[in-house]
Design a protein around this nucleic acid. Structure first.
Lengths: 251, 251
DNA sequence: CGATAGTTTGATATCCTTCAAAACCTGTGG
DNA sequence: CCACAGGTTTTGAAGGATATCAAACTATCG
């Protein structure tokens, strides 16, 4: 049916977390999501130092923003899940200050900056929803800094997992407290500012506690409440409650 | 003279790091910077959970964005120096996910969101410069996450100090490798994800090494090169080179 | 079925924290 | 001009969370 076709577009599904859209707006968003390209896990979409000329939109799979130090250590600063985009204001900079890389096999649209700006200029509701995503991304980054700066290892992991569960759930990619988690333990370590060995030991403890199971790249959370409390998680920064916003259109 | 009057506006001086402005544009920026209010060190400008209805612009002194955990630990996520603003897109959220607080006595303008948007709509050059500040702020936040996640204590401090020296220098507030640094050691600790006691010991070591002196709230960097190398500092993320951008107007 | 990436384990080292107290500023009021 | 108060810096001793190194084990995939 028409309806299921609509929500199959990850960008629309993501932005509809913020507000509803008219059919016309949805068509404009569809046009932005054409011609995805495939990447394999580990491939870079763009590297630090390069000039951005498009805005990435993740259609399928996971990617991440990261930076590396001269000694080879890597810090992951954000995950891009289906429907997520890179920075829509990247047109003002002439060099990326971080790289973006595929964490799993994924399909990615490179939206030309000009096209994106036309849509923003013509559709205020879409513009506002896109601005909202930049706010959520920024707030998430701040929360990660809080996570790495102030929480101990177990709390960091607990926080990360509940954030991911919420985000995956919100875009329809989680089912009964479980979701596909394509990260290696090294990826998790580079996200949380810990060592792969230590992450491994934390995971074993969480499994032993009956909190989670993580096998074959799938994470299941058995006690969401306890996990969330362990990470002192508060969902406010994700700005996922649409209650206070008005729907922009009908259908 | 006229010329010195112009650059005395911290917002103009900051945005001119990105591009030049016409007199008309400068007048518009002047109008945005009226009626500063004074805060004392430690006072909150706005707290997590509150709805933002203006965008803060720092005229004088230092402020910071921060978040706290239930156990009382605080993570500072950004410093606002003279000319810096809070998030210009905060109008899309209905609750702040972090607080903003004065680190020193300071003077702050609360720019009404509507006024700011009028200026953005009417002056594309100003809009672009403001977008540039959001990029710099975001890149700085990512760099801080890298700092806290991957560098050891000494490197974190070295990185932070050279970043601050560059930023203070760029807005004309540093003289011969020194600048006013109103932070307590606790503030620094909460910025770097370390303990005040440990920060104190690092500072002593840096002093002993002849790298810096820090006394009476003034930091002097004696060996910028060595400090910068110690923190594996690369200035790219500050996007301070205006070389590749065209001046928008004359005078 | 072999190659390669990812996970797990053990033993040891260290960076950084914690706690608690002393010393030192800085401003304020008498 | 002194004395006090509160915040800030400094010091010491001891403990703990996390890192490091190196090797074995286990999946996965062509």
């Amino acid at each position: 049916m028409r309806r299921s076709w609509r929500v199959s577009n990850p960008l629309i599904r993501k932005l509809e977390l913020f507000s509803a859209f008219s059919d016309r707006e949805k068509r404009a968003l569809e046009r932005l999501s054409l011609d995805p390209r495939s990447y394999r896990a580990g491939e870079d979409l763009i590297q630090e130092g390069q000039r951005p000329n498009s805005v990435f939109l993740l259609i399928e799979g996971w990617a991440c923003a990261y930076k590396m130090l001269p000694d080879g250590s890597r810090q992951i600063m954000a995950y891009l899940l289906p429907g997520d985009t890179g920075d829509i204001f990247n047109f003002v900079v002439d060099a990326m200050s971080h790289s973006i890389s595929a964490l799993s096999a994924c399909r990615v649209v490179a939206m030309p900056q000009a096209e994106l700006h036309e849509v923003i200029a013509e559709y205020p509701a879409i513009a506002k929803a896109l601005f909202w995503t930049t706010q959520v991304d920024g707030a998430t980054l701040r929360e990660w800094l809080l996570n790495v700066g102030q929480r101990d290892g177990m709390a960091r992991a607990a926080h990360l997992f509940t954030e991911l569960a919420l985000r995956m759930g919100s875009i329809g990619l989680a089912a009964n407290d479980g979701f596909a988690l394509p990260l290696t333990q090294t990826d998790m370590a580079d996200t949380m500012g810990l060592t792969p060995v230590y992450v491994n030991r934390m995971l074993q403890q969480m499994r032993g506690d009956g909190l989670i199971t993580l096998e074959r790249r799938r994470l299941t959370i058995h006690e969401p409440e306890r996990l969330s409390a362990m990470g002192a998680f508060t969902p406010g920064y994700l700005h996922m409650n649409r209650t206070s916003r008005a729907a922009s259109a009908t259908a």
